[in-house]
Every structure is written in C-alpha cells, then in structure tokens.
C-alpha cells in the first residue's frame, strides 16, 4: 500500500471498510478526494453507444438510441458493424487532465487507478469469454509514447488479448474533426499473421470514445475478417 496518492501526490490515510477488511476490495491507490472526482457513467444510457442521456439535451434522444447512433444505423456502410459500446468514466475536464497526464505525459503508473472500476464495469456489460482487441498505435506514436494506452487498459482485465490490428495512418485522431475522421476511409488493417477464432465475441479496448469513428473503423476491419459479434469498451466517453 502506498503512502502517497498517485494523482495529487499528497500523503493520505487509506480508508478501511468492511470489504477491505475481508479482502473483497483492493485498497485504493488514490486518496478519497481524488477518487471522488471521477464520475462514473450511470443511469439511463443509449442502448448502443452507452451515452448517458442525463448529460445531453433531450433532443439528442430517439427512443432508446441517441442521434449519433441513429446516424450510424442509417449509414449503410456502418450499419450493424458495432454491437455496442460501453465506457467507464465521463470524459469531463478532470478526466481530460488525468488522461492527458497518463497518455501524453507518460505517467504510466496511473493505470492502476482505473483497475477496480474498469474490471467491475467491464464484467457488468460483457461476458467472461470475450476476446480483447486493443486499438493499436502507429509504430511512430508507440515509439514516442512508450506504451499503448489501449493495451495497458486491456491488460487490467485479465482476459485473452488479441493484437489483431495495425494502423496505417499516423496523424492523431484527436487533431481531426468528425467529418475528417469519417472521411479517412482506411485506418486499420488486419495483421497478416493473425487469424480470428470463429464465433467468438470481440471487445475493442480504447481510452476515449468521442464520435465512435475509431472503434467503428476497427470493427469494420474485424467484420471483414469474419468476426460476427464486435463491441467496444473505453475508459471514458464524452
């Protein structure tokens, strides 16, 4: 058990609870204040992409789906590619700062702070026999960053990981608009040495779900390779 909070670096007293005592819950690496700053996604969700309805205007909603998902559904190239998406935290200013520090400034150890919530939320939405497919980085980006954040997240879950994808493009997704993202037609391709097991459910793992383009692109590649059930799971979503 560490002495300092991984986020604010202040010394803190671990809060003990009954489940800690019986070892049903691991002790936290964050102090109570930092932990409380994370906002879990809960409540009424879009059936498809997991967007919380209470954080958007009512006009974005159509039945059980959000307008974005309706748009995906109507587009013939994308319809039915992705079964569903679920995310853990709300991508707010705080989360933005945390991810920036973790991903862009290389504070790799922070991944521990996501472990409990990641695992709990994952197994609430996905079956235990899922195969995880982390979204890859281009080799240049991987060299620059030192780790693949999606793979780091996937490793928290303790399920089989299949590195099935590779990336063509090297321009950052986050520097593009939705339109530009959609325009980019081929982002990923299947690695030549990989064959997908038949009939398995695949879950794509990524850090952030913004418009859903990245996971849709990746899902499309997998679908072309013969996969049927493809979902995605991300740490945060807007």
């Amino acid at each position: 058990m560490s002495e300092y909070c991984l986020l604010c670096h202040r010394r803190y007293a671990q809060r003990m609870s009954w489940r800690h005592l019986l070892m049903l819950k691991q002790t936290d690496v964050l102090c109570h204040e930092c932990r409380c700053s994370f906002v879990l996604i809960a409540g009424d969700l879009c059936e498809c992409c997991g967007r919380p309805f209470d954080r958007v205007d009512e006009s974005y909603r159509q039945g059980e789906l959000c307008i974005d998902c309706v748009r995906w559904k109507h587009d013939s190239t994308w319809s039915g590619v992705l079964t569903k998406n679920r995310s853990v935290y709300v991508y707010d200013a705080f989360m933005k700062e945390v991810i920036a520090r973790w991903k862009f400034r290389g504070d790799y150890a922070l991944v521990e702070a996501f472990r409990t919530d990641m695992c709990r939320e994952f197994f609430r939405h996905f079956p235990r026999n899922s195969i995880l497919v982390p979204i890859p980085l281009s080799s240049a980006r991987l060299y620059e960053r030192g780790f693949n954040q999606a793979k780091a997240l996937a490793e928290l879950l303790g399920l089989p990981i299949l590195d099935a994808l590779e990336r063509f493009d090297s321009a950052k997704q986050s520097k593009k608009s939705r339109h530009e993202r959609l325009e980019t037609d081929r982002v990923f391709h299947l690695r030549s040495d990989v064959s997908l097991p038949a009939g398995a459910s695949f879950v794509l793992i990524d850090d952030i779900y913004t418009t859903g383009t990245t996971v849709h692109h990746a899902a499309k590649v997998l679908r072309h390779a013969g996969a049927v059930d493809i979902s995605s799971f991300t740490l945060a979503r807007s």
């Binding site: 058990m1 560490s2 002495e3 300092y4 671990q14 003990m16 800690h20 005592l21 002790t27």
Partner: peptide, 13 residues
C-alpha cells in the same frame, strides 16, 4: 512507516 509499501500498514487489525 514513511517507506512506501510498508507491510504493516492497514494490517495491524
């Protein structure tokens, strides 16, 4: 103890 990862911390119970 001030060292990180002290074994006793939280375990005296």
């Amino acid at each position: 103890g001030t060292k990180r990862g002290t074994k006793m911390k939280g375990n005296v119970v």
